[in-house]
Design a binder for these strands. Structure first.
Lengths: 340, 340
DNA sequence: CCTGGCACTCGACTGTAACGAGTGCCAGTC
DNA sequence: GACTGGCACTCGTTACAGTCGAGTGCCAGG
């Protein structure tokens, strides 16, 4: 356990060099590139200890050392400070996000920005419905027995569903239904709506009971049960950077995982608050991502998260830089959404 | 130009074998696997001619032959019949598409289905706005100077935009505005709306002119100018099938192209009718897709296309099967949308 | 016009040797 | 006791030569 300061410095140097060059790093190269003030031989001894403790390993006997997942973990937890963003990056973020016209646009711009800045695969969850509240419900008559239900959330998200009514309704009926659902539901959080929706049926006029019953079913499905949480993805081409060295030769598992919205949502969307999470290699619960790292955070106005965003990349990534960028983008997006 | 029947048969055999095995195919293997009724030597002579004409080539001197883009083209145009779908595939399509609850759902299911059946990357364009007509326009007051404009198209597509008004409006004003835009625009094709939108301002009451002016600007942006055509993508992991042999080693250009929505739209969305297009390798206008082939078609009720869908894969693909699947899926989706 | 035979080409694979980066260990020094 | 220089050792990488075999082009004969 004796990890004195110099051994930690050696580990830090190894991580930094390896991330930068992609080559296993040897003792000689280390002392040349960093002011450690000791000889290669000493560094070798330190390396031996670090290897015994499981922080680094040798790909083969006559090669340099490479950090293990555990090594990266220690590096992230204790050896790195979050890099401040460069002014250029700040400008890029601002420039990219102003001028977004609607929620879709915001999300798309965000995910592309994040991919571009981190040079990795970016994932952005749409603001979660469960954590939004209802701004307005609209009922559009399609025919006498069909309505289009449109729900507008305070985050700007819009959901629609077709409702097949059991019996024809008049235009006045639709107006009544519309007024009633809006009176009862507008302003409440979607996660709190189920009891309110239940009550709707009882409070409606007798001749509307049938219509309201089906309507409330659809409402429940749309608003609550159906976890129609969506995500946007960008930068998959970045997976091909660094040849096939990362991800041990096959992008397949990574690409597969990225396409599974459910999986990604679990990964990115779990954040309840706006703290940053870093999952390194094996720490990942998803088998397909065992060769990758995930940096994610929640975003939203204040400290509550409306949704999550993050990046997926090789374990060999620039953690300080990536963490800084992910946080900064999340903060900007949070502010942007708060303005609506 | 003397391509007699046997030479064509040889070309067909080469394409089929190469697609199946991924190995360059030699004269001996050919006569063994196909009943050509001639000796390897004869086949070799035919091959020499086919090579001279540019339909096949040798990767290296002592290897078998591989079809060129031109060879595939001839194969597709003259040597293959579209395979009928297997009953299993038909069932899969039906099973996959019933139960879709809204447009998003339809598109997502379709793209995943297509990716799964063809084992390639699938692309589906959302029903084009320009070719839809307006079913309903809704104005939701957010504050006295802000409206949420929601447009519902007959395809089920919903678009929303925030409108910042130059001056406050009352609830009655909003009602008037809503009535007016719906009266004038509902039922017309989006591509025909510009003159109608122009007229809106003149026909509105004096005190609404200002509001209507900004509203009409946003309408034009949303409905027409902004080609906010969207696409859905699935099956990128399929690019990794066949090792790195296809796409000459790097998926990067392909992945990059796939992420450029504008590019993909141009590719997939150009279809005005429901005919099938096949672009093979070099025929592709997009440089990044020069190593790939694209099979696409329009879909929609009847012969007019609401949007396009297709797949992107290696030039070495099963064209007859892929074409059949793409067409079948497009037909089903067209029917499905017609039901709404 | 087709066929069998034959010489030829050239990539894939194998084995060997030289090279060198990097290590572990040890004796010596401060 | 901690650090250092030196040295033997390991082992992957590269280069080179040789063999093998799939596949070809060509030609003489049917």
């Amino acid at each position: 356990m004796g990890l004195d300061d110099r051994k930690l410095a050696v580990l830090r140097a190894i991580v930094e060099d390896y991330v930068a060059t992609q080559d296993p790093v040897g003792s000689k190269a280390l002392v040349e590139r960093h002011q450690l003030g000791v000889s290669p031989a000493t560094v070798r001894n330190d390396m031996a200890v670090l290897e015994e403790e499981g922080y680094i390993r040798q790909p083969h006997t006559s090669a340099g050392r490479v950090p293990t997942d555990r090594g990266y973990r220690l590096f992230v937890d204790r050896l790195s400070r979050v890099k401040p963003l460069s002014p250029a990056e700040r400008r890029a973020i601002e420039r990219f996000l102003v001028g977004a016209v609607d929620l879709d646009d915001v999300v798309h711009r965000t995910v592309r920005l994040l991919a571009q800045l981190t040079r990795q695969v970016a994932v952005v969850q749409y603001p979660s419905l469960a954590r939004s509240s209802v701004r307005h419900l609209e009922l559009v008559p399609i025919s006498t027995t069909r309505l289009m239900l449109v729900m507008i959330a305070d985050t700007g998200r819009v959901e629609q569903r077709l409702v097949e009514l059991p019996a024809p309704v008049s235009a006045d009926d639709v107006t009544d239904l519309r007024r009633l659902v809006n009176e009862k539901l507008v302003g409440s959080r979607l996660s709190e709506t189920p009891p309110l929706v239940q009550a709707l049926v009882e409070e409606s006029a007798p001749h509307l009971r049938g219509a309201m019953t089906t309507l409330s079913t659809v409402l429940l499905e749309t608003l609550v049960e159906r976890h129609e949480e969506r995500i946007a993805l960008a930068g998959t081409a970045n997976l091909t950077r660094g040849g096939l060295l990362d991800f041990q030769g096959s992008l397949r598992p990574i690409l597969e995982a990225l396409e599974e919205e459910v999986v990604m949502l679990k990964l990115i969307g779990e954040a309840e608050s706006t703290t940053t999470r870093v999952l390194i290699g094996d720490e990942n619960e998803i088998d397909n991502l065992r060769a990758a790292s995930v940096v994610s955070t929640g975003y939203g106005p204040g400290a509550t998260a409306l949704g999550g965003l993050g990046v997926v990349g090789p374990t060999r990534m620039d953690y300080p830089g990536t963490i800084a960028t992910v946080r900064a983008v999340a903060r900007y997006v949070g502010e942007l959404l708060a303005q609506n």
